[in-house]
């Protein structure tokens, strides 16, 4: 799974397979980080409990 695991080898199979895995994980991780960080900015920006673009108004 990691290059420091003893059975790791820098061959094409490992690169393609693990490349795909880490690529997917990076997108998931980056996406979630973006959403969380942006939400933190949004609340510190004084937007409070609702959002102008959100069509799901409840107030």
């Amino acid at each position: 799974m990691f290059p420091f695991c003893f059975e790791w080898s820098w061959d094409i199979s490992h690169l393609v397979f693990m490349g795909g895995l880490w690529y997917a994980l990076s997108i998931i991780g980056a996406g979630m980080t973006f959403a969380i960080v942006k939400s933190l900015f949004d609340i510190s920006g004084g937007h409070g409990g609702h959002d102008d673009n959100h069509d799901h108004s409840h107030h």
Binding site: F34, A35, I36, K38, S39, L40, D42, I43, H47, G48, G49, H50, D51, N53, H54, H56, H58
Partner: peptide, 13 residues
Amino acid sequence: ERKPFLHHLSHNM
């Protein structure tokens, strides 16, 4: 949804 952070998180996701 009442919690501002969760509200924004939902929207941003």
